[in-house]
Structures are given as C-alpha cells and as structure tokens.
Design a protein around this nucleic acid. Sequence first.
DNA 1: AAGTGGTCTAGACCACTTC
DNA 2: AAGTGGTCTAGACCACTTT
Lengths: 236, 236
Amino acid sequence: MMDGPLYLQIADSLRQAILSGTYRPSDMLPSENELATLYATSRVTVRKSLAGLESEGLIKPRHGKGYFVLPPQNTMYTLYFGEQAAGGQFRFQEVNILVPEKKVVETLGLEQGQMAILTRRVLERDGKSVAYDEKYIPYERGVPSIEFEIGYAEFPDMFNKRFAPMSLRTEMTIGVETAPEYVCASLGLAAGTQLLVVGRRICTKEGKPVGCGRQYLTGDYGKLTAESGYYKTEKL
Amino acid sequence: MMDGPLYLQIADSLRQAILSGTYRPSDMLPSENELATLYATSRVTVRKSLAGLESEGLIKPRHGKGYFVLPPQNTMYTLYFGEQAAGGQFRFQEVNILVPEKKVVETLGLEQGQMAILTRRVLERDGKSVAYDEKYIPYERGVPSIEFEIGYAEFPDMFNKRFAPMSLRTEMTIGVETAPEYVCASLGLAAGTQLLVVGRRICTKEGKPVGCGRQYLTGDYGKLTAESGYYKTEKL
DNA sequence: AAGTGGTCTAGACCACTTC
DNA sequence: AAGTGGTCTAGACCACTTT
C-alpha cells in the first residue's frame, strides 16, 4: 500500500497521532499485540517502531502496563555554538606559557604554580573586530607541540590527539560581564562595556579538566540560538 | 558471567571501547556476524546493542560496509532553561490587550492592527528583583480564558489546551541588549544597563507563531548553562 | 560470489501489573 | 490467570558494496 519499511510506516502513523493530539501526554498507546494485529505484522516489527519513538523522546514503556505518551520537555534546548560558525577570521594576539590567574587555576584544578598555555585571539569579520577569545590549557613538560596546535582547531578538537576523542565533555556557561580592559581595547570598545560571555570547560569523562576558554561576543556578532521541540532529527 | 541483559553488556563493552579510544572516529566496528559469534549470541541481539549506540550518536551503519564510529559533535550543546528553574516568585506587573509594537507584530506574523495579550512580570528572589519577563500571545475573539491562563505556567505549557501539546516548537535567541527604561526601573537598575536577554518564540509544527516572549536576566540571576559530550542520557 | 547491513517472521520464556 | 512489556532465538530474504 504505502512505501518504505513497514516499521517506519507504523512509527510515522503513531507519531502523527501523537503530534496531532489523538494521543495526548500520559495517554496509553495500544499494546504491542494489538498493534501487531492491527498492522498484520509481527510483534518484533511493532517493537522496532516503538523503540524509535521512544528514542525520539515521545513515549516511554512501563513494564506490565503499556506505552505512555510523555509530556513535552520544554526546559531542554539544543544550542548551536561553533567558533567558525558565523564566519570571519581569527588573528592571534598572544600565545604564552605562564602561571594563570587564580580563577583559571580553580577552573582547571591546577597545582600551585603550575603553568598553562594561554592563547588570545581576536575574531575579525568584514574588517571589524567582533569577538575576543582566550583559552588556557595546562602545560605539561614533554607533551610535544601542543603549543602549535592550540588555537588552530575548534576548541574540543585540539585535544583529540591527546585524549580519546569521544571521552571529552564540554561545560558551557553563558552570561553578561564587564569585559576586561584589554578585551575592550582589542575590540575597539569603551572600557567597561558589558559583553556576552561564553565560558567553556573541557573535561575528561573522569571529570578532570583539560582546558578552558572564554569568548567575549559583541552585539554585532553574538547572538546565540537554540531550539526545542519534538521534531525528527535529521542524520549527521 | 556478568549481570543484566546481554544486549546491554555488549553495548557497554563497545561503548567503553569507543570512549577509551580503542575504536576511534571513522574506525569500523566488527561486523554483526563477528560480534554475534564473539558473544555467542544471535544477530538480532547484537543489532539491538548497535541500535542503542547509534541512537546515542556514537556510531552510524553504512549499508553493505559496516558500522563506523562518528566524530565527536562539538558544536551542539544541550541547554537547560526553565522559568521556575532557579527558584523565586513572579509578581505580575501588567496584563493587557493591545496592538503590540512593530517588532512583536513581525515576530508573531500578526495582521495589521491585530491585538495581542501582553503580560509583564518581575521575578523576585530573596526580596530582590532579579529578572523581568514579558510575553505576547495573539488575541483571538472567542478563545476563552487565555487571559487568565497566560503567565501561570511554564511558557510553552500554556498552549497545551489550545494546541496538540507535542506539536509545538520553541526557538530561542540569547544576546545582550540595553534594557528598556521600564525594565531597568522595575529591576532597580540604572537606565541603559546592559542585560542578558533570552527571547523565545513558540511555533506550531506548521511554522505558525503562537506566542513570543523575552526575559531580561540580571547578573545575580542570569547564568545559563549548557553541555555537550557523549554521555548516557538518563531517563526522564 | 561473498560479505555487509536492512527488514521481517513465528515462535519461546521471563518479569511485572492487574484482576 | 490473563495481559503487558523485556529478552532472545534461528532462521529467511533483500539491497548494497567489494572482490
């Protein structure tokens, strides 16, 4: 009748019924056996459809009871933030090895007096300085050439050679702060300007910080966007 | 040997191998048949394990070839933003029906002269005003009692009675703006203060806007957090 | 032709929930 | 006891990729 695999047809049909309100949050779907009879197929195929809807966050099965429609999740958003995302070019302002300020020492969990590599960059677009960026990475003797790698890749990427690439986690905080003087100067702003600040910390899955950074975004450049809702996520 | 369902043991084992770097991005995993033999089980069970890892975003199968480890996704973050999240209490400042300013008319796609319901609220915590909130909803004659519902629920929730609850999508923009005078006044700030602004627009899945709002967050209150990384997402 | 993933079946047994 | 979801099997056939 229709095209495509049966399990997707069943999933589409159920999804449509949920999105259109035929089934509402906390409603129970027909049982696996009922659906199997209804679509003249096996229980295995029905289960595959339901597993898909479950991983989309639409439904949740309860053992011995049935499948229930979940309430909308409206406090969780997906945010896109890439350094190169909005175009422009980075100009290096400083690359240094030093004992960082106290705040960074805490964030990275550094030992007393331990050094870190610092990079400062200015993002320019259309000839204007629109964002300022600084990153700290704990300095370890004998780890070769990180000095040259730092700052040339999207932030978490630069650790892929030193750590298992899939084992890193990034924490982000977004806020407004009075930009330091050197940042204002570099961006051509009056001292004391308030800027959107995106702070990031990269940790291993054991929780050990391996790097942190801050970006100061000017109004021209800095608008973050996020979204939420039950929509099919397209493939990567 | 181990406990728990076999398919989870297999998934855990493979996940561990990926997170620890045994398999790295773009590497190919053993084939379904090899894994089935290796774990002395059926191909169906192995497929269930692999389907789980796929929905976690760790691997991707290619027809006729095999399963491949995906590169880390480091421009996508999960952000949590709830109005009630950080505690505090809302005090209503204004509830009105009016023709909104031009910017709102555009955002909501209103007809010339169409009215909207406006609410303005101040969020107070520990006796201090820490955030300001305003929301617009298109006004439609005959739609009962929205005037009374608006503002009493988490933003997208208030539409659940009028629309299929699962069919709504929220777009969010985050930026820094000079707060309007009435906002500064309500928050006890000097005129012209720069604040973190979270704008949201709720749309149906057909793309029709059904409401929008803005929140001005002061430094005391407004720190947004987000995260990214390959970690098992716990259940709801 | 051989190997891979993609779809599907017709059972089986178990654990949980309800009556 | 009957119904539900949870796990698992041992096949089958198809579509795609590589040799």
